[in-house]
């Protein structure tokens, strides 16, 4: 898994590539937790994300909790499989899924 983070004014984009599983979720979690206070929008760019495990999904929950009071969390370009996972788990209720 590789993670790239960029900040654009009050938006933070975390680009996740590869597989987020039990072994790599911690790194993903750290990247999410380090977003600066005052961030209005957190975009998780999933364009290159091939797989996400339960541990990875929990990080998305943490991201949502973190942003609850400040702004929104977007999932950008998840592939069909990941989109289905987000739907089955009900994450699409609170994640803003965006296609670009």
């Amino acid at each position: 898994m590789t993670i790239k983070k960029s900040v654009n004014n009050d938006e933070v984009i975390i680009e996740v590539e590869g597989r987020v599983d039990t072994n790599t979720a911690k790194e993903f979690e750290t990247a999410v937790k380090e977003i600066p206070a005052g961030t209005k929008k957190l975009t998780i760019d999933m364009t290159g994300l091939a797989y996400i495990s339960s541990a990875g999904l929990r990080v998305l929950l943490i991201a949502n909790q973190l942003m609850d009071e400040y702004g929104e969390v977007c999932a950008l370009n998840p592939n069909n499989e990941i989109r289905e996972i987000l739907s089955i788990t009900g994450f699409d209720d609170f994640l803003n899924i965006v296609e670009k």
Binding site: D21, S54, L61, T89, G90
Partner: peptide, 17 residues
């Protein structure tokens, strides 16, 4: 066998809902 933290994830996502 299922991945670690799956049951917790289930509980947390349901709690969120």
């Amino acid at each position: 066998l299922i991945e670690p933290e799956t049951t917790l994830l289930y509980q947390e996502s349901r709690a969120k809902k």
